[in-house]
């Protein structure tokens, strides 16, 4: 069985670590060999953040290199463009249409590329774009963008929805379980 590689990318503070832990717990419970790689520290301070999740019968490297990702889940548009070269031929980009300006854009040193997703799609990539921020707010908190996107990613996996919901229960703090289940559901059925 081949290894499946999922990259979760976003801006520090958006909750990509929790998303990767949810995925890791789900896939471990499903009996796969799993590796999840995070980078902490400096990169969390509003910087670009990338997490790798790989699963299969036997996973060696925790890293996903150029052209290796089956899925890229991006919490922000610009970050999808930044890491798009990691996508495998025929892979899918699940992306939140939210725009968060990086400091070079804020200071006027650079421009935010408004057409980044269109260019990726024009290059032949499968882009699945959703307004995860609005869905998260509908679920009850803007901070649930991460779980909305996991709900969207779940559509591409052959794992029943109830298994995902069970993984949410084991991953998030009890008081946030209902919120996150609602967020997952909105992403899944978006």
């Amino acid at each position: 069985m081949k290894t499946t590689s999922v990259m979760i990318v976003g801006v520090g503070g958006q909750g990509s670590l929790l998303a990767s832990r949810l995925l890791g717990n789900l896939l471990t419970a499903e009996g796969y060999d799993v590796k999840v790689s995070e980078v902490h520290g400096m990169s969390q301070r509003g910087g670009s953040v990338v997490t790798y999740v790989k699963f299969g019968e036997k996973v060696y490297s925790p890293i996903i290199d150029l052209g290796e990702a089956d899925f890229i889940v991006s919490f922000e548009k610009l970050e999808a463009a930044r890491y798009a070269s990691c996508l495998k031929d025929g892979g899918t980009v699940v992306v939140n249409t939210q725009q968060i300006d990086p400091m070079p854009v804020i200071t006027g040193a650079a421009e935010y590329p408004a057409d980044a997703l269109d260019k990726l799609a024009a290059g032949g990539m499968h882009i699945d774009a959703i307004d995860a921020l609005s869905l998260a707010e509908k679920a009850g908190s803007a901070r649930a963008v991460n779980i909305v996107l996991m709900g969207r990613l779940a559509k591409y996996f052959g794992i029943p929805e109830e298994k995902w919901l069970a993984a949410i229960e084991t991953t998030v703090a009890p008081k946030f379980v209902e919120l996150n289940k609602a967020a997952f559901d909105l992403g899944y059925h978006a």
Binding site: V11, G12, M42, S43, Q44, R45, G46, G47, S48, Y60, S61, I63, D65, L66, G67, E68, L78, E79, A81, R82, A84, S85, C86, L87, K88, D89, P102, M103, P104, V105, A109, A110, E111, Y112, P113, A116, K119, L120, G123, M125
Partner: peptide, 29 residues
Amino acid sequence: SQAVVAKAFGLPEAAHATPDAVPGRPPMM
């Protein structure tokens, strides 16, 4: 990484797109 190892032994790298350069997102206060 595996790509670094493959390259050092002269093995081909995976096919991948080369999207436009995008503004950096450095960490900040």
